[in-house]
Simulated assay, not measured.
Amino acid sequence: MTHTAPRLDRADYESLAPQTVAALGALGRAVADSGLDKQLTELIKIRVSQINGCAFCLQYHLNLARKLGTPMAKVDLVATWAEANIYSARERAALAWAEALTTMATGSVGDAGFDDLLLHFTMQEAAHLSAAIGHINAWNRIAGGLRFAPPIPAGHLSEQAGT
């Protein structure tokens, strides 16, 4: 059985590494202010967090996607976006780019994926999208490695327990 107890909670991490949290916060604000569609960036953050197995970030960005009014079918099917015909060509290109950058340790990032990205995004948008992907990957390694407890929304715990 795998031990999954938190190693550190987010509040403690923030007090132990305030400059790191501030730097990551600044990067997050830069991405948020870039003009990229917020629903799209949340889908990217959800998919990357799924790939990296970060429960905290996954739940955090699911919560944000819901608050932004992201269509639930898109949230529910993002793990299988390539097979689900509900994503726009722009969303598909962004999700493919997110997967390529997140898994680049296992293979090179090919030109075809970047070329497809540029069919749907300007070079400036591609730069910001790449920063968003790098940002969530950094948080996944921190929150996943330290096993931050996921931020479960109020009312969801009783649903999960089957009561």
Results as ranks from 00 to 15, higher is better:
T2D: 12
H3R: 14
T4I: 12
A5Y: 10
A5E: 15
P6V: 04
R7H: 15
R7G: 10
D9M: 05
D9L: 05
A11K: 14
A11C: 01
D12G: 11
D12N: 11
L16M: 14
L16K: 15
P18C: 13
P18G: 11
V21M: 13
A23C: 09
A23L: 11
G25V: 10
L27D: 01
L27G: 03
G28N: 03
G28H: 07
R29E: 13
R29A: 15
A30Q: 13
V31Q: 02
A32D: 13
A32I: 02
D33M: 04
S34I: 09
L36K: 02
D37P: 08
D37G: 06
K38W: 01
K38R: 15
K38Q: 15
Q39V: 04
L40W: 04
L40C: 11
L40G: 11
T41I: 15
I44H: 01
I44L: 11
K45C: 07
V48C: 08
S49K: 00
Q50C: 09
N52L: 10
G53E: 03
C54L: 05
A55K: 01
F56H: 02
C57M: 03
H61V: 03
H61L: 02
L62Y: 02
L62N: 01
L62G: 00
N63C: 01
L64K: 12
L64C: 07
A65E: 00
A65R: 00
R66V: 13
K67C: 06
L68P: 03
L68E: 10
T70E: 09
P71V: 10
T80E: 12
A82W: 02
A82F: 02
N85M: 11
I86S: 06
I86H: 09
I86N: 10
Y87L: 06
Y87H: 09
A89S: 14
R92A: 10
R92V: 05
L95D: 01
W97H: 05
W97T: 02
A98L: 05
E99F: 03
E99H: 08
E99S: 14
A100N: 05
T103K: 15
A105E: 09
T106K: 12
T106R: 12
G107V: 04
S108G: 13
S108E: 11
S108H: 09
G110K: 10
D111R: 13
D111F: 07
A112I: 08
A112M: 02
D115Y: 09
D115Q: 14
D116H: 13
L117D: 00
L117P: 00
L118C: 07
H120E: 15
F121V: 06
T122W: 10
E125M: 12
A126H: 08
A127L: 14
L129H: 05
A132P: 08
A132Q: 03
I136R: 04
A138K: 06
A138M: 13
W139F: 08
N140E: 05
N140L: 08
R141Q: 12
R141G: 03
A143M: 04
A143C: 13
G144P: 01
G144F: 03
G145Q: 06
R147A: 08
R147Q: 14
R147M: 06
F148N: 02
A149N: 05
P150L: 06
P151A: 12
I152M: 11
P153Q: 08
A154P: 08
A154R: 12
G155Y: 04
G155I: 05
H156Y: 15
L157A: 14
Q160H: 13
A161K: 12
